[in-house]
């Protein structure tokens, strides 16, 4: 009767349509709006940075997998592309190519592959790469080109500072808040649309939110982490602003500037380095929000998102241990 040899395996015999590839390429797709905005404001430089970052991440992924991990190469699963794009989103558009390559090496080689590849890294690879660059090349990493709409010439554009840097500098010089806000050339609408100085992908709140909504729709992320981070930041800075509006910026300013949305939507939600349960995700999000505000308001750096996420990444195993899901039929001891 049967000609074929039958396959025998344990149940279940049916499989869902999820796959690592689908998730990773879903994230890539969600980053496209922000990428388009960056091209719109920074010109071809944005594409250059992205291509270099993606290509070098793919190369290092292949290289380490082939020569150090000795497994099947996994570059096709898309995770290196995500890391590359996130790294590119986190640097200024005029960054020299060799710095980007170093960043990719740190991101993939040190932060990801040395722990055993995809899924085993405790820290977000792109952020490790970015922070490494920020500390090693502070000048290049904080020289932001001024935005110029649809400027496709590759000439050295004028440079300027981010609103957050202007804020920090102003406060350090003892200026009052109204003076600082007046000196910042960007309005809230500009910030929302993306017309401000900053890293490649972090400028446009609108594009990031569209990407976030897409990922929510595709069920790649849940709402818990972004909402917890943004909510915490809004409440925390709101309290500070309420206490002294002349010394502290508005919550809206904090949310729209810097890497806040990019971090909350794309970086902190990285599955590998975020907690497993919803309860844990909220704790994690609150932690990131509080640390970010602490660094922004009282720290030496104008921006604290990447540090906050990395610090909370380190706490994730503990959070996972504290926040077990509620077991079905658990007998609660009185």
């Amino acid at each position: 009767m049967a000609i074929n040899k039958l396959t025998v395996s344990m149940s279940p015999h049916d499989y869902g349509k999820n796959s690592v590839k689908k998730i990773m390429y879903g994230v890539v797709l969600a980053m496209v709006p922000a990428l388009l905005v960056s091209v719109y404001f920074f010109g071809l430089d944005a594409i250059r940075v992205n291509l270099i970052a993606i290509a070098s991440c793919l190369f290092f992924e292949w290289f380490f997998q082939k020569f150090f991990l000795k497994g099947n190469t996994t570059i096709a699963d898309g995770s290196a592309i995500v890391t590359g794009m996130l790294l590119a989103f986190n640097v200024p558009s005029n960054l020299p190519w060799w710095i980007i390559v170093i960043g990719s090496l740190v991101a993939i080689g040190i932060a990801k592959m040395s722990f055993g590849g995809l899924g085993n890294n405790p820290f977000n690879p792109a952020l490790v790469g970015r922070v490494f660059l920020l500390i090693s090349f502070p000048v290049q990493m904080t020289t932001w080109p001024k935005v110029s709409v649809l400027n496709f010439t590759m000439t050295d554009a004028e440079t300027g500072a981010t609103p957050l840097a202007l804020l920090k500098e102003g406060l350090n010089n003892g200026k009052s808040m109204t003076e600082i806000i007046d000196s910042i050339p960007t309005s809230y609408v500009d910030m929302f649309m993306g017309q401000m100085g900053g890293s490649l992908g972090e400028i446009s709140a609108l594009a990031l939110i569209i990407g976030g909504l897409y990922m929510l729709f595709r069920k790649i992320i849940t709402w818990h982490i972004p909402v917890a981070i943004l909510g915490t930041v809004a409440i925390f800075t709101g309290i500070l602003w309420g206490i002294d509006p002349t010394k502290y910026a508005t919550p809206l300013f904090h949310i729209f500037t810097g890497g806040m949305l990019l971090g909350a939507i794309f970086m902190a939600t990285d599955m590998v380095t975020s907690p497993m349960t919803h309860k844990g995700m909220i704790i994690y999000g609150i932690g990131i929000g509080v640390i970010t505000v602490l660094i922004r308001v009282w720290g030496a750096y104008p921006e604290g998102m990447s540090f906050a996420i990395l610090i909370m990444n380190a706490v994730v195993p503990l959070i996972n241990n504290w926040t077990k899901p509620k077991r079905f039929g658990e007998i609660i001891k009185n």
């Binding site: 040899k5 039958l6 344990m10």
Partner: peptide
């Protein structure tokens, strides 16, 4: 001779708990 195809983790313990093997 093999009489069927085992599709599962590379573990004798798992395979033998499932059935007689391939």
């Amino acid at each position: 001779e093999k009489t069927n195809i085992y599709d599962g983790p590379k573990s004798c313990a798992i395979e033998s708990s499932l059935y007689t093997g391939d």
